[in-house]
Design a protein around this nucleic acid. Structure first.
Lengths: 342, 342
DNA sequence: TGTTAGCACTCTGCTTCATAGAGTGCTAAC
DNA sequence: GTTAGCACTCTATGAAGCAGAGTGCTAACA
């Protein structure tokens, strides 16, 4: 793999990424500025195909990069790319203008990410289920209802209105809250199982029915802990701009997949390293996206991993630029999180 | 418009709705069971076309219904349809299994709606900005932070973690909360403007900087009031199953439109009558959906309109069935709301 | 030995053309 | 008023032909 081969390969991939057309020796000879003839390039291309970096859609077409070609491109060929000032500015302004709350931050992240990368983007927040129960509190609302609030170590987890059972005093409610807080405080939400709740029920036996609301809220909160492992998906229409999805069948297959939250969750959840991870074509464990690449990175808050964001597109993707965007967004999101911490 | 014409028209529309193919006189003669020959049907069809109820894609093709034809079909021809037991069961189970909170109820509504109707469905909740501020409360969190909670007449509106400014006692915080609650209680969120907040600021002048967090939270909450006019969108992939969207261009046009929350909001917000409203083709005020029909209904909670749900699809739509589904969902959602009231 | 020009060959995609099929409208008969 | 028959029209489909792009091979050249 000499220098010229690398240059040729890079030129082919760069060109293919922007045109989506198989590319011939003439074009490369003209573009890559090596000062050699198409015939020479043909020889190089033939070698590169033999090495598995290129493919031919059919016998007399130009070459296109193979998955292996992209892999080599990402690992060895492409230079690191800086995010353009324009994009950085866009991101900053976007968040300043649109984000008011944490969930909005996530929502807007996928929006701006897909807009800049012109691909589908996703974001999962997988860490909520590991948070600890801190306390539960009843707040007055009106004569017949109270607001129940569950506070965890990440802030308020869940809240809702609850009917006050007839003939219950505020003091009684407070006592129940105290018992529950004493028994549950410090437990991870996932540890709060029915068995623990049954014990508490016995403890406040005189009026067990009063507990039900609070109990169900906690059950909900722990349930929500999983439900809150929310997947944000954005820019699905971007798919339709990609020539590889000119076929409605393909679009449908992929879009249906993307509607399955659990699937998306798995696509991303599998990896939680620190840097930007690129998964090309069949490297993805789901065959449904074997013609796609995923570029992902996890983001942290106070050192703890709290989620993953990713861009998904055809293997023909602007890897360098997309990685730069993801990297920027990873850092940016960390800051945003601090600001809008629950 | 005699009885036989009506029968022919109905047969044509029914058939076209299910096949999406222009339909000829032979087929109708066979299917609608009038015992007349294709030639007779041809005469009727010719009349119906002259009346504007039918169209011919080209000179020697069968007929398809015009927008006017659909309108007549919806208003006069089709019988009221009951929701099938299967669908009713599906909806009930769906909510039982998946819904834990209010926003989930909305989210799942569009999911199940689009699944049953096999079309795009949407839901907007336009009424949140009209709710009243009740009170604000600081809850202890840890040494340096408190949880701030804004309670409105619909329940907890917003909450978040806030840093406690150095050297501030809990009592001081409580006092500030008391002042704010006194001044703001009963106001609609939209009425809480900077001017009012400035006044309060003067009132607790000794430590105005303490207010900032709470103030910004309220600003956020009022801002969120608008942001909470949320649009839920579901089943966009259903589009791809419709033959009228076999063209990627059309899909893209419509999907891009559907990504604009504000547009969707306007499509639905315009009408807030009580029953089920059907808007066919060019009756829609947005030219982008002039080949689509919208079936919508508002839903209520305690008599007050709290949102609108809708199904959007090509003009060739199963009107009777979709209307039945929407009607059922309208009532069902009312019940669900009561249960999961904030 | 690496590079290049020339050339034959191959494969796709587009255009053109012919044909089959579906459906209509008209006329004349019932 | 209804129906059978028939000529006509328009589309969709498939075959055939052609241009264009690109390759691989060979032979010549530095």
């Amino acid at each position: 793999m000499d220098e010229r081969k690398r240059q040729v390969l890079q030129a082919i991939i760069d060109d293919y990424i922007s045109t989506a057309e198989p590319i011939g020796s003439r074009t490369i000879a003209r573009k890559c500025g090596l000062g050699v003839s198409p015939a020479t390039i043909r020889n190089e291309m033939s070698d590169l195909e033999a090495l598995g970096f290129l493919e031919q859609p059919h016998a007399s077409a130009g070459r296109i990069p193979s998955a292996k070609g992209y892999r080599f491109y990402v690992d060895c060929l492409m230079g690191p790319q800086q995010l353009s000032d324009r994009d950085a500015l866009l991101i900053n302004q976007w968040f300043d203008q649109k984000v008011r709350r944490l969930d909005e931050a996530f929502q807007e992240t996928v929006k701006v990410l897909s807009r800049i990368t012109r691909n589908v983007s996703l974001l999962v927040t997988p860490q909520t289920s590991s948070c600890q129960f801190k306390y539960l509190q009843f707040l007055p609302f009106d004569d017949t209802r109270v607001v129940v609030i569950v506070v965890t170590d990440t802030g308020v987890m869940d809240n809702r209105l609850m009917e006050i059972p007839a003939g219950t005093s505020v003091e009684e409610l407070q006592r129940i809250a105290a018992v529950m807080n004493h028994r549950l405080s410090g437990l991870h939400l996932t540890e709060i199982q029915s068995s623990v709740l049954e014990k508490i029920k016995e403890e406040v036996l005189p009026r067990p029915e009063l507990l039900e609301g609070a109990l169900s809220l906690i059950r909900e909160a722990t349930g929500c802990a999983n439900a809150n492992d929310k997947v944000y998906l954005g820019g699905t229409t971007q798919l339709l701009n990609q020539p590889e999805f000119r076929d409605v069948e393909k679009v449908r297959t992929l879009l249906s997949m993307l509607e399955e939250d659990r699937l998306l969750y798995d696509i991303l959840h599998t990896q939680d390293g620190n840097g930007v991870i690129v998964t090309i074509g069949a490297e993805n464990k789901f065959s449904g996206i074997k013609d796609c690449s995923v570029i992902q990175a996890s983001f942290r808050l106070d050192g703890q991993m709290v989620g993953t964001l990713a861009v998904l597109g055809p293997t023909r993707m602007e890897y360098a630029r997309t990685m730069a965007v993801i990297e920027f967004m990873q850092a940016h999101l960390g800051n945003v999180l601090k600001k809008y911490q629950r």
